[in-house]
Amino acid sequence: MTIVRQISGFVIRDILRSRWSIANTMFFAIATAGLFYLQADSARVAVSISSLSLVFIPLISLIYTAMYYYNSRDFIELILTQPIGRRSVFLGLLLGILISLVAGFITGIGIPYVILGSSDWTDISAVIAVIVIAIALSSIFAALALVAATRCDDRGKGLAVILGMWLVAAVLYDGLVLAAATALAEYPMETPLLIASLANPVDLSRVLFLVHSDMAALMGYTGAVFIRFFDQPIGLVVATVSLLAWFAAPVWYGLRRFNLKDF
């Protein structure tokens, strides 16, 4: 664990000094400040930020993680020539990238919130819910990106794969679910749709936020259907366990690939 901490510490230091990290933080800071300018209500800003996060956090996490891996490939090789196990290198990289992404997001939305937001507990808890979603999505998509980058040595192919992942998870999936639900409207669809939503971490994150903010009407179709199930404690447990599984599965598979990989 010490080695993982050492590697992640250096990755964080490297990333936080990069222009990319500043751009990521500035993006969320400008978006949040802009939303406050358009609608002074902190709760509504939290809803808008969550919608923005559902689209952009997967994209940023995927692209940044893959790019960092590809740009650091020679250095990763050099680290692997030291007397340490590959497992520590993989986990150190993932943890370092993840902490940097989350830190950028929290700083980006946090500063405008502190300056422009209200101190009402309901509003603060909405922001905390957004941060939880951001941590979940960043973790899952950073892990998926690391798997894709580990599998595809060719940078172009790797980036094409992760863009495909993003397109499916953040854009196409809800459309496909909606089309399927419309086509099969005569049948009871709630259980199949519930299962279908567990297959997409973006939808799952949306559900978590819906449960918290009770604003199903503002979200997508699947969110509206599942609010009834996820409003109960068991629903929240299912969503949380599914998100954890979405993180654990790529980490487990990525570790296996990384251990067997030829560098």
Binding site: R13, D14, R17, S18, D74, L78, Q82, P83, G85
Partner: peptide, 21 residues
Amino acid sequence: GGSYRAHIGYMPQRATFPGDL
């Protein structure tokens, strides 16, 4: 576990380190 690499020094063809360190 790779402990044998404690006795190896490696100088690669391209010395690439993280640019911001």
